[in-house]
Simulated assay, not measured.
Amino acid sequence: MYVYYSEIFKKHTPPFRHPEAPDRLDYVIKGVVEAGGVVKEPKMREDAWRLIYSAHDKSYVEYVKRLCGAGQAEIDGDTYVSAGTCDAAALAVSAVMEALDKRETALVAARPPGHHAGFAGRALTAPTQGFCIFNTAAIGALYGGDGIAVVDIDVHHGNGTQEMLYERDLLYISTHQHPATLYPGTGYPDEVGTGRGEGFNANLPLPPGTGDDLYIKAIDEVVLPLLMQYDPRAVIVSLGWDAHKDDPLADLALSLKGYLYALSAILSLQKPTIFLLEGGYNREVLQRGTKALVRLVAAGDFRPEETQTDSPLHVARRYEEIMQEVRRHLGRYWRL
């Protein structure tokens, strides 16, 4: 598996102490090296900005470009732009397009993250852009066109991706901590898409405290059946490591065993799969998770080096209530 990485991705620099900082990539690359992965420098595409403009509102893109030219600015209390942000974001888009064109299974170890960025930045009802600038996953899905699926396993709902794909018949699946308990406050089961996209937007909100046992059940009973019925040409995975029990910004309780189970299920489709780094703020988890992912793709090595986490009884009860709601809404479109 190729790992697309460039030092340019570290040029998106915060103006103050921030959880989404350049050193995240140092730990990702340590994991790649430990696993024997191949690091590949992506090439900036001539059409990168055209693709960004085609997905996002023109005035928003030009606003970000002006901020990059200014050298350092805040979009909101969570989200910043620096002099290197625009180059980093355009190169991230270029890397995803290269992997899609080559039909590769690859990891794009890029930043800034993107899944909270909507058409004009702040998406749906979110109070901020949540560290995100341009929505690389959605841009990739729109570029790839028919048959592209996006699976978002970040702990936060990908509100920007949902907004941008909501009227498209491109499958979007998001597993995330329940929106009543965490930013951005969207991603309920009844949000299923509209127009051509009706039925193609699938949200699986999980109660705080959800462990591997229930997460594996959600993968088996909802995520994998949806993917198998959709039968994608390629899959883009918005990969956030922040659903891990040791992440400081949320309250799910997955171990790497739960993560690897989900990633292995996606890979079992035997379709080109692009893993795109989103969240994840525990540096050791970033390193160990990346190492495990590279080993999984290279050799089917399923050794998470962590024991399975189990959910408390009250969490399991709430999970079943939520999944009944998920099945009620998605069962109109899919066999679940």
Rank of each mutant, 00 (worst) to 15 (best):
M1P: 12
Y4W: 05
K11R: 12
H12I: 01
R17Q: 09
R17M: 10
E20P: 02
A21L: 03
Y27H: 12
G31E: 06
G31I: 01
A35L: 08
A35W: 11
E41H: 07
K43D: 06
W49Y: 13
L51K: 07
Y53A: 03
S54N: 13
D57H: 05
K58C: 00
K58W: 06
Y60N: 00
Y60E: 00
Y60A: 01
V61T: 01
G71L: 07
Q72N: 01
T79N: 02
A90N: 09
A92S: 14
V93D: 03
A95L: 10
V96P: 04
L100S: 02
R103E: 15
E104G: 06
V108T: 08
F119N: 11
A126F: 12
P127E: 14
T128G: 10
G130F: 13
C132F: 08
I133Y: 06
I133L: 13
N135A: 13
T136C: 11
A138R: 05
G140L: 07
Y143W: 15
G144S: 15
I148W: 08
V151I: 15
V151N: 04
H157P: 05
Q162A: 06
M164D: 08
M164H: 11
Y166L: 09
E167G: 13
D169H: 13
L171M: 14
T175I: 09
T181L: 09
P189Y: 14
V192C: 11
F200E: 00
L204S: 01
P205M: 05
L206E: 01
P207T: 08
T210P: 00
T210R: 02
D213P: 01
I216H: 00
K217E: 12
Y230R: 04
Y230S: 01
D231A: 14
I236C: 07
L239N: 09
A243G: 08
H244K: 08
D246L: 12
D246W: 11
P248T: 03
D251G: 00
A253C: 08
S255H: 06
L256A: 02
K257P: 00
S264N: 14
S264P: 03
L267S: 11
F275E: 06
Y281N: 07
Y281Q: 04
N282Y: 05
Q287L: 12
Q287W: 05
T290Q: 09
A292M: 11
L293E: 13
V294P: 05
L296R: 04
A299I: 02
F302A: 10
P304N: 12
T307W: 14
T309F: 07
V315M: 13
R317Q: 15
R317Y: 15
Y319E: 08
M323G: 04
R327F: 15
Y333K: 09
W334D: 07
R335E: 14
